[in-house]
Write a protein that binds this DNA or RNA. Sequence first.
DNA 1: CTTCGCTTAATTGCATGCAAGAATGCTCTC
DNA 2: GAGAGCATTCTTGCATGCAATTAAGCGAAG
Lengths: 232, 232
Amino acid sequence: MQLSEAETAAAEAELPSSGPRGRRTMFVVERIRDMIIAGDLPPGGRISERMLTEGLGVTRTPLREAFKILEAEGLVRIVPNRGAEVMTLSLAEIEAAIEVLIGLESVAAELACARGTAAEFAAIEAIHRRMVDCQRGGDLMGYFHLNQDIHQRIVDCAHNAPLSRIYRTESARIRRYRFAGNRSAARWARAVVEHEKILDALQQREGALLREILRTHHLKGWQATRQVLEQE
Amino acid sequence: MQLSEAETAAAEAELPSSGPRGRRTMFVVERIRDMIIAGDLPPGGRISERMLTEGLGVTRTPLREAFKILEAEGLVRIVPNRGAEVMTLSLAEIEAAIEVLIGLESVAAELACARGTAAEFAAIEAIHRRMVDCQRGGDLMGYFHLNQDIHQRIVDCAHNAPLSRIYRTESARIRRYRFAGNRSAARWARAVVEHEKILDALQQREGALLREILRTHHLKGWQATRQVLEQE
DNA sequence: CTTCGCTTAATTGCATGCAAGAATGCTCTC
DNA sequence: GAGAGCATTCTTGCATGCAATTAAGCGAAG
């Protein structure tokens, strides 16, 4: 029956590939995580199951399991009998999170200088170059992502899996806020200069120095971010 | 019908209060977490849903949600179509985790000395005294728990919620292994002496010093633990 | 005796049904 | 007109059913 086939095809096209059996929950987790980080789901807004089941083409069971994972990651808050909402962070909470990120990078800095390979450093340098291009071209979005990538890779150079995992998760928790606050051109230019120094220290394997540069880098960035966030 | 009533009462006694609606998943999470940390569930062993639903008096749905949370915490590994198993860590992975804990405590040490209140320090001192009593009485289990509590509280003195949360989670991931390796009487005695110094540095608010003491404390502890673990 | 293949039982992943609780809107009172 | 109380609808939390997958048991061939 041709009609039947056409209908089936249409139905399949409507359901946006909810993923294979056994990984549907993870598929949903990644989707929602991206949506929250990208700001598609507004902070503090309730996430209704109905909306997402229809949008993602999955049923409630994997969706609810995904909520639990996202709650453990700190991206979502589940209120009993009221469902999930996108976690909101106060300025103080963002500051605490950044304090943690600075701490994690401090630890990672010395380990990265001790253990990082030349290939890893070269890869970071390449990304750094692309990031500078983005800054010259005014591509804030591209810059922001490459910037994140560089910091994650520096942590990865420590060759400590849990450290990388924690940094990734905690970084994701506040990414949205940092992006929202990253809009000062002056700060942007200086951040690039600081990144040059970061790269130098890393390649010279000067752990203590790298650590300090990263620390002040983040503190300055936070001051700029905070000023923007305070006006909202 | 008396018999019917008796049967009902027995059935209720058998089902160990699976908790109120809306918090059943969390109830299960805490139970399983405790069971893993305490070693009631053997490392690497599969956790069948049937076994736990019967043991905990809940149905599969909250149980499966609990597995997802525990997987996010790193206590459990879920293999598609094969279910959950207790996460096992290699010596290298335990070492990496301890490296992270040392890093977290390093960060916390300076913050704790800067921000901790006298009341918090006094509470830690009180626990320390009870811990010393446990050591004198040979109560290894009691000692171990109070020891954990002290380290967590030092981190809590940093007054940084995510830092405390991360430390708690990461600490739980390897607690079982640390307990298994904590069996040398000589090491035990020296650990108490180190804890005296830790308390001193904290109360004198000497952050840099506290940091170094904690670092060597953990490194020595890990050396002792590793030796025991290597023989298994 | 081992091992390969098949059949069957057990287990998981997901969908769906049902009931409890919350949100909404209505009416009635003041 | 505002607000309290109640009924209705909607949403969530959990239980259960069904299908896919894996593991277990078993017989036959090498």
